[in-house]
């Protein structure tokens, strides 16, 4: 029995690695698209982070350095979340388009190994891209990171990844149910998540009902934790109040994501949606 379980586990790990391998090939084959998309993200982030300087130029009194970093962290977290959702959700949509979805879903690969493989790739690639984005955009700005504890900020980002991957799994099912608009619905989920989480402003400015919703959003704790680490130099111990909710939401979100995806897959199998659409 134990031998059988070892064989099964090994098979799952090999399948998990297959998903990571496939996504690595895809990134390599679309490397120039990735470069172009990165440049777009840099430009998009710059349009946001210069708002603080713009406000100062317009006569508002504010701590430009601090507000620029607040905006920068908001834009970078938005980009990270966007990439995570894009990889997890669009891969399913992409597979529908290419027709490989039938081959992937008829393979003896468990759905948790499949989805966690996509999540793991998304996190690794997303973190690398986010660090690069932060570095490149910072070069355009006249800001100083006097107290920043970047290590602690990375711990917050890593802790948030579990819950973001779980939510990504829930949105990944959308292209199975709605081939035409499923992916866009994933972007809507991303936007809704960030608007209630204080992406470019404190949560306290939101209407009360939105503040209640923000308590359940992992992005709230990611943004708060990352800002405390980068602006005030708060270490991992001091950030525990933001880290534990992230881990707790992750513990709930990943099984919930798998369950939602399984439900969607059953629906797709019943209604004949598990097939190519291109």
């Amino acid at each position: 029995m134990i031998r059988l379980d070892t064989v099964a586990l090994r098979r799952e790990l090999v399948g998990f690695a297959g998903i990571v391998e496939r996504n690595t090939y895809l990134i390599r084959r679309f490397v120039w698209w990735e470069v172009a998309w990165f440049l777009y993200t840099v430009a998009n982030t710059l349009t946001i982070v210069f708002i603080a300087k713009g406000a100062e130029a317009a006569g508002y009194k504010l701590d430009v350095n601090r507000e620029t970093i607040v905006l920068l962290i908001g834009a970078v977290v938005w980009s990270y979340l966007g990439l995570l959702f894009e990889i997890v959700t669009e891969t399913v949509a992409w597979e529908r388009w290419e027709g490989t979805i039938e081959y992937t879903f008829m393979a003896p690969l468990s759905r948790p190994a499949h989805l966690l493989g996509m999540g793991a790739f998304a996190v690794v690639y997303g973190v690398l891209r986010t660090v690069l984005l932060f570095g490149v955009v910072s070069e355009f700005l006249d800001v100083t990171f006097v107290h920043a504890d970047f290590g602690a900020a990375m711990v917050v980002l890593a802790a948030s990844s579990f819950s973001f991957v779980g939510i990504g799994m829930m949105t990944a099912v959308l292209p199975l149910i709605s081939p035409e608009k499923g992916t866009q619905l994933g972007f809507i989920a991303q936007g809704l998540l960030l608007v209630i989480s204080g992406v470019y402003y404190p949560v306290s400015v939101l209407p009360q009902w939105m503040q209640w919703l923000s308590v359940a959003s992992p992005a709230t704790y990611t943004l708060e934790g990352a800002r405390k680490a980068v602006l005030d130099g708060t270490g991992v111990a001091g950030l525990w109040g933001d880290i534990w909710p992230l881990l707790l939401i992750g513990v709930i979100a990943i099984p919930a994501g798998l369950a939602v995806f399984a439900q969607g897959e059953r629906y797709a199998k019943r209604h004949g949606r598990l097939k190519r659409s291109g």
């Binding site: 690695a17 391998e21 496939r22 090939y25």
Partner: peptide
């Protein structure tokens, strides 16, 4: 995956 090579397509699917 049309942009991927035959070897790449076979390799990842064998992993499944």
């Amino acid at each position: 995956f049309k942009r991927m090579s035959p070897a790449e397509n076979l390799s990842y699917s064998a992993r499944f």
